[in-house]
């Protein structure tokens, strides 16, 4: 399986990455993609607040290992020809891309399912942490969501 995993500060381009993923492999009949963007609004407990910027911290070294392990687990469950996972770190502005997952397979179902699986497991196992800066200059770490743990657990039950 062709695998591309990157943790980077620079932005990425969906079209360019999709072309790179499937280039030269005519056995690929389906590519599914997930693109995560910096949302300008977040709810923390009862506080619904606008945010100004988002900063992504990670655990260098462990992050890359964790992403490789997640992609390998996906490849054991579905017939995949190629996978790309790109996650940005550092300070990001509203509307900018944070994360990209591309999965390529012969048929759509494997591509859809593997893409969702990789995102769901990434959300609970890859060591990234988000810190929001608010318009008034205050900062807060984002809390993990129970719904993310449930989404990941669903795959482990199935």
């Amino acid at each position: 399986m062709k695998t591309r995993i990157a943790v980077q500060t620079e932005p990425f381009d969906l079209a360019e990455e999709t072309a790179r993923l499937s280039a030269g492999d005519v056995t690929i009949g389906a590519v599914a993609s997930f693109l995560g963007l910096v949302r300008g609004h977040n709810r923390v407990g009862e506080d619904d607040a606008d945010i100004a910027t988002l900063t992504l911290e990670h655990y260098p070294g462990m992050t890359e290992k964790a992403l490789h392990r997640i992609v390998d687990a996906a490849a054991e469950r579905w017939p995949l020809q190629a996978v790309t996972v790109i996650h940005r770190v550092g300070e990001l502005r509203l509307g900018e891309p944070i994360v990209l997952v591309l999965t390529a397979s012969a048929h759509r179902q494997a591509a859809f399912d593997a893409c969702q699986f990789i995102m769901d497991i990434l959300k609970t196992e890859a060591p990234f942490w988000k810190k929001e800066r608010l318009p008034d200059g205050g900062e807060r770490w984002v809390d993990a969501r129970e719904s993310d743990s449930e989404a990941a657990a669903r795959w482990l039950r199935d």
Binding site: G36, L56, H58, Y59, G61, M62, K65, A66, H87, I98, V99, M119, L122, K123, T124, E125, A126, P127, F128, W129, K130, W141, V142, D143, A144, R145, D148
Partner: peptide, 26 residues
């Protein structure tokens, strides 16, 4: 050593241990 580990994991000279809150990437 950059792999998630439980409390029973043995420690050895040269190990790298990480402690962190639940992750919030993606």
């Amino acid at each position: 050593n950059q792999e998630m580990a439980g409390p029973e994991t043995p420690l050895a000279d040269g190990d790298e241990v990480g402690f962190f809150p639940p992750v919030t990437g993606g």
